[in-house]
């Protein structure tokens, strides 16, 4: 729609003025309009105006980096809804999850979505790493972006792991017990590391609040900042492009 295309009806003209003030350029009727739209739109600005045709072939990225990011957004949104109902207390957490499953409207599907998207993100990030490796896309000048990516992989695993404890059921508590037992074996300060992770010697209230804060604030924030840098560098270095 063109901003200047004012209709005879004052109401239509008013509406089109509002529309035009939000979306400064119309739908991409020509390459020029499309380029200007991409340049002036905040959300599209993450992309360059033009890309190599070979770089956006689905067979090249397999959409994996993009899908990882999209799953991250989906997890943020579904997680936000879960937060309205979830209280990180050993006395209440399990009941909150039960309520989500059986009482709250759409609670069950929201929880399922959050869980399966989390597993999905672990898989897509892994596959994204594999595709970047096999295509040699980590070679100069992208060495450091690969390193940032490696940290993102670790953050993704930790996000998933920290969320695992929150339902406070047998699966959660024992998976975290087994997982954190591994930290005990560090030659220097192993048991201490585990104590710091759990806020105690066993998985209890101390561990729950720590994992909760890590899961809903610290790790998403770290992940988001790293993603911003990751995307910035992809944007500056350009896509590697076809082989």
């Amino acid at each position: 729609m063109r901003a200047s295309g004012a209709g005879p009806n004052p109401l239509v003209r008013f509406a089109s003025q509002i529309w035009g003030s939000i979306f400064r350029h119309g739908l991409p009727s020509t390459d020029k309009v499309a380029a200007r739209t991409a340049l002036t739109n905040f959300f599209l600005h993450i992309h360059p105006v033009r890309v190599k045709k070979s770089a956006i072939r689905v067979s090249y990225t397999l959409c994996l980096g993009g899908l990882s990011f999209f799953l991250f957004i989906l997890l943020t949104i579904s997680g936000l809804f879960l937060m309205f109902y979830y209280i990180p207390s050993v006395d209440q957490a399990y009941q909150n999850i039960k309520d989500l499953q059986f009482v709250e409207t759409f609670g069950l599907v929201t929880r399922n979505l959050h869980r399966w998207a989390a597993h999905g993100m672990v898989i897509t990030v892994w596959l994204h790493m594999a595709r970047v490796f096999y295509q040699g896309s980590y070679k100069p000048p992208r060495e450091f972006n690969w390193a940032i990516g490696s940290i993102l992989l670790v953050v993704t695993l930790l996000l998933s792991f920290s969320g695992y404890l929150l339902p406070w059921d047998q699966l959660a508590v024992w998976a975290i017990t087994v997982g954190t037992n591994m930290a005990k074996y560090a030659p220097i300060g192993g048991p201490y590391t585990r104590y710091v992770m759990l806020g105690g010697r066993t998985v209890g209230q101390g561990a729950l609040i720590r994992f909760y804060v890590l899961h809903v604030v610290a790790l998403p924030l770290i992940g988001f900042i790293l993603m911003v840098i990751h995307f910035w560098r992809v944007r500056k270095d350009g896509f590697t492009g076809g082989l």
């Binding site: 050993v90 399990y94 999850i97 039960k98 499953q101 069950l108 929880r111 399922n112 959050h114 869980r115 399966w116 998933s160 792991f161 695992y164 339902p167 406070w168 059921d169 047998q170 699966l171 959660a172 508590v173 024992w174 998976a175 017990t177 087994v178 997982g179 066993t202 998985v203 209890g204």
Partner: peptide
Amino acid sequence: VNAPLLQRANTAITPNPAKAP
């Protein structure tokens, strides 16, 4: 497919096997 939810956590009962994610 529903996300798994077992019994409420009970540190006295160790499931066998106890597995990490």
